[in-house]
Nucleic acid binder design. Structure first.
Length: 150
DNA sequence: GCCAACGTTGGC
DNA sequence: GCCAACGTTGGC
């Protein structure tokens, strides 16, 4: 069992949207490093949901991986904004996992706060210019945040 | 909305 | 294989 963090822009898809839907295919990942993380995710892995591009970005709650990686259908859909004409069905380039809503933290953990937590000092999450939308979380980071969130 | 930082693309 | 140009991410 592993821990992860997935970023989302709440204007496009928020933790509240995930709560309403219950479960969601996390499509549209078009970064090789993030894709490789997707491919190593397993059912039962736990996930922090992070809201980006908001006045106070940070971790807002949790989800769980309920379906391991399979090819992201949007890469083959010319109508989709995630369409990738260079990807072919016999050798799909992009995958997705499905995640289910778990909980919303009573108080989120802002990026400003994460920067002050020693467990996160080496995390790409707090590095300037970091663009990884999916990243691994250590068990000590997971425990710390859960305790912080109460 | 701005723009620094970064990943990707493509000409050479 | 280099690297300039381009597109995107994400904090502010």
């Amino acid at each position: 069992m592993a821990y992860w963090l997935m970023k989302t822009e709440p204007d496009a898809f928020s933790l509240q949207d995930l709560q309403r839907r219950g479960q969601e295919p996390w499509d549209g990942i078009r970064n090789y490093q993030a894709r490789n993380f997707l491919r190593s995710m397993q059912t039962g892995d736990e996930v922090f949901i992070y809201h980006s591009r908001v006045p106070a970005p940070g971790i807002v709650g949790t989800a769980e991986v309920v379906c391991a990686a399979y090819p992201d259908p949007t890469q083959f859909d010319p109508q989709s904004k995630y369409y990738d004409p260079a990807s072919h069905p016999d050798r799909p380039r992009w995958d997705l996992v499905e995640v289910a809503y778990r909980r919303t933290f009573a108080q989120g953990i802002a990026l400003d706060t994460l920067r002050t937590i020693p467990e996160f000092s080496d995390s790409p999450l707090i590095r300037k210019g970091n663009r990884l939308s999916i990243l691994p979380i250590t068990s000590s980071q997971w425990q710390y945040i859960l305790q912080y969130a109460g």
